[in-house]
C-alpha cells in the first residue's frame, strides 16, 4: 500500500516499541553490573552475577527441573496431542462436537485454578510425588497448544495424499509417519516451540505443584526476589531469555535439517 501514515502515529508506534524493548535491555545491562545492588546503567562490567547463578545450588537445581518439565511435558503433550489433532481433522464427522471444546479447556480454565485443583486432587488426595505432579501440570498446560497448532496445520493438509499412499500399498500407520507427519512438520515444530516456552515460563500452575526440593526456575526466581535484590535476578532473567532463544534455534535447525536430510 502506498497510503501515507500520519507521522504522529509513527511516533506513537516508536514509543510503544521503546516501551516494549527498553525494559529488556535494562535487565540485560543490569545483569552485567559490578555492584551488589541492581542498577542501570551498569557500573563496572562483570560476569560475576552469572557465576553466582551456578554458585547458588537452588538455581542450579531448578534450571534442571525446568528443562526436564519443558522437554518431557512438551514431549508427552506431542505424543498425546498429535493423534488427537489428527482424529479431530480426519474423523471430524465421526466424533462429537464437544470434543474440540474439551481440548481447549486447559486454556479456558485459568491456570491458577488448574494449579490449585491439581494440588488438591493429585498431590494431596492421590498422594502423587511432587515431581510427577509438576510434570502432569506442565503436560496439561501445553496439550491445548499442541492440539491447536497441529490442527491448524492439518486443516490445510490434503488428506487425498494420504489416501493415494494407502492405495499404492502403504499401510495406514506407516503412511502417517511417511506422508502425513512430514507435511505437518512446521506445525509440529511450532507446537513444540510454543509449548516449550509456555512451560519454561510458567508460574501459575507450578506455583502450587512445587514442593520441598522440587521447584522450577521462575518459582525459585520469585522466592529469591523476596529476600535479595541483587543483579543475580537480572542475570537469571538473561539466562532464561537466552535459553528460550537457544531452544528455538536448536529445534529449528536440528528438526528442520533432519527432515530435509531424509
Amino acid at each position: 500500500m502506498t497510503t501515507r501514515i500520519h507521522p504522529l502515529l509513527i511516533l506513537f508506534t516508536l514509543v510503544v516499541y521503546v516501551f516494549l524493548l527498553g525494559p529488556l535491555i535494562i535487565i540485560f545491562g543490569a545483569s552485567l553490573s559490578d555492584t551488589t545492588y541492581l542498577t542501570f546503567p551498569p557500573q563496572g562490567l562483570s560476569f560475576r552475577w552469572f557465576q553466582n547463578i551456578w554458585d547458588i545450588s537452588a538455581f542450579r537445581r531448578t534450571i534442571v527441573t525446568s528443562l526436564q518439565m519443558a522437554f518431557l511435558g512438551t514431549g508427552i503433550a506431542l505424543v498425546i496431542g498429535i493423534p488427537a489433532a489428527y482424529a479431530l481433522n480426519r474423523y471430524r464427522v465421526a466424533l462429537p462436537a464437544w470434543l474440540s471444546t474439551l481440548f481447549v479447556l486447559p486454556i479456558l480454565v485459568p491456570e491458577i485454578v488448574i494449579g490449585f485443583s491439581l494440588l488438591r486432587s493429585v498431590t494431596v488426595q492421590a498422594g502423587v510425588p511432587v515431581w510427577y505432579a509438576l510434570l502432569i501440570g506442565h503436560t496439561l498446560l501445553v496439550i491445548p497448544y499442541v492440539i491447536r497448532v497441529v490442527s491448524a496445520s492439518l486443516a490445510s493438509f490434503d488428506f487425498s495424499i494420504e489416501e493415494a499412499a494407502i492405495s499404492l500399498g502403504s499401510p495406514p500407520a506407516k503412511t502417517f509417519f511417511t506422508i502425513v507427519l512430514p507435511n505437518i512438520r512446521s506445525g509440529v515444530i511450532a507446537a513444540f516451540i510454543l509449548s516449550f516456552i509456555t512451560s519454561i515460563n510458567d508460574v501459575s500452575v507450578s506455583l502450587f505443584l512445587t514442593g520441598p526440593g522440587v521447584s522450577t526456575l521462575p518459582i525459585q526466581l520469585l522466592a529469591h526476589m523476596e529476600q535479595f535484590f541483587d543483579p543475580t535476578i537480572a542475570s537469571v532473567s538473561v539466562v532464561l531469555m537466552l535459553l528460550t532463544i537457544l531452544v528455538m534455534i536448536i529445534v529449528e535447525r536440528t528438526l528442520g535439517l533432519a527432515i530435509v536430510a531424509k
Binding site: 529488556l24 535494562i26 526466581l221 535476578i233
Partner: peptide, 15 residues
C-alpha cells in the same frame, strides 16, 4: 518480549 517470561518482565518494572 512474548517469549520472555512474565516473571522476568514484571521484574524489569520492579527495577
Amino acid at each position: 518480549p512474548l517469549l520472555t517470561g512474565v516473571v522476568v518482565r514484571s521484574f524489569a518494572w520492579l527495577v
